[in-house]
């Protein structure tokens, strides 16, 4: 006889290994290639900003959980680290520390903990922080250091390709003229462009995507539907007037689309439950992004698009349901009719 009492619990008695901390660790690993690329591009600034953001987020979450909500700290699940990393990925690599602190406080405090912590926030916390900073510190948030320029902290600033495009078009230039001022598509793909810390390299982000798909952390539905929508919409506009609208590949590789599609929109908490819902969500983000980029006053619209679609998630959840077993069957209809007949026949 074994020592001690036996445990009794309801079935199932086995459980998957993919638990919340495991998933969070997986996401962090998936973000590392993008981080390495930005270190290569921007040097120490990227490391400095990322570490600061992570530190602030974790400390703020710990403090709020411990001293404000008076409950055990929830930092061990790793979600605060991800929020910090994503926030860092969304800001220029030369952002002063006090702005990072404000961003982290807004992201964790308002974006996440005010709703009750992990799992209860309707909006992506990192994006809440990012948009808050963008609106509060427009100058600091839009002066990006030049890519691949230097390893020092005070680098020369440059505009992003999207910024150049928007300003150029406003000034009356045509797209082909503006394209000549920009790096090549291979540079875009590998990340040699101006912009926020983590959004540079489509290649590095795709590596992360492949890793997350392989680990079954996310499914293909949101990234693919979002990217396909953007490709399709920008393609249509490009075909209509190539002098006013940039080609789809340019749109796909610049700005935060890749980062948004892979790491931001796929956030479990703020995306729909079902595959159907995810497709709707992805398409919605795609449409909004393109509309903001092409017709809005901001050069970039991914953050806004994702936040707007976040608000629609509860609605999507209540309509986009999974097909239920037995609901589609032809026999089922016949069965229902028969039942109805029987009901009618009985007096």
């Amino acid at each position: 006889m074994s020592a001690g009492l036996l445990t009794v619990s309801p079935s199932p008695h086995i459980h998957t290994d993919l638990t919340v901390p495991q998933i969070m660790r997986g996401v962090i690993i998936a973000m590392i290639p993008a981080l390495l690329f930005s270190v290569y591009n921007f040097g120490l600034g990227a490391v400095y900003v990322t570490l600061l953001a992570i530190l602030f987020c974790v400390v703020i979450e710990y403090a709020i959980a411990r001293y404000l909500l008076k409950r055990p700290a929830s930092i061990y699940d790793g979600s605060a680290i991800i929020t910090g990393m994503l926030l860092a990925f969304n800001v220029p690599s030369n952002l002063p520390w006090h702005i990072i602190l404000i961003g982290s406080a807004v992201a964790i405090g308002i974006g996440k903990m005010s709703f009750g912590g992990l799992g209860n926030n309707p909006f992506n916390p990192a994006l809440v922080g990012r948009v808050f900073l963008l609106l509060s510190f427009p100058v600091e948030m839009t002066s990006w250091p030049k890519a691949g320029a230097t390893w020092s902290l005070d680098a020369v600033t440059s505009a992003t390709p999207l910024g150049i495009l928007k300003d150029g078009l406003r000034a009356g230039d045509t797209v082909p003229e503006l394209m000549n001022q920009m790096p090549s598509y291979t540079d875009f793909f590998f990340g040699l462009q101006g912009g926020s810390l983590g959004e540079m390299s489509a290649f590095a982000i795709l590596l992360g995507l492949i890793y997350m798909l392989y680990r079954k952390i996310i499914t293909w539905h949101i990234p693919l539907s979002m990217l396909a929508t953007i490709l399709l919409m920008t393609g249509i506009f490009w075909l209509i007037d190539p002098t006013r609208f940039a080609n789809p590949l340019f749109h796909l590789l610049t700005g935060g689309i890749m980062l948004g599609a892979v790491f931001m929109a796929t956030d479990y908490v703020t995306s729909p439950f079902t595959h159907r819902g995810m497709l709707v969500f992805g398409v919605g983000i795609g449409v909004l992004t393109v509309v903001i980029r092409l017709f809005g006053s901001y050069p970039e619209g991914v953050s806004f698009a994702i936040l707007i679609m976040n608000a629609f998630v509860p609605l999507i959840n209540s309509y986009a349901k999974q097909p239920r077993y037995g609901s589609k069957s032809q026999r089922h209809k016949a069965y229902q009719e028969k039942l109805e007949k029987e009901v009618k026949a009985t007096p």
């Binding site: 638990t19 919340v20 998933i23 699940d77 009750g116 912590g117 992990l118 799992g119 209860n120 499914t219 479990y268 908490v269 703020t270 995306s271 729909p272 439950f273 079902t274 595959h275 995810m278 999974q322 097909p323 239920r324 077993y325 037995g326 609901s327």
Partner: peptide, 16 residues
């Protein structure tokens, strides 16, 4: 942990 809305239970449910 809190529900993280991953939707894996819906994905797994054989009855939809």
């Amino acid at each position: 942990y809190n529900c993280v809305h991953c939707g894996k239970c819906i994905e797994a449910c054989p009855m939809g």
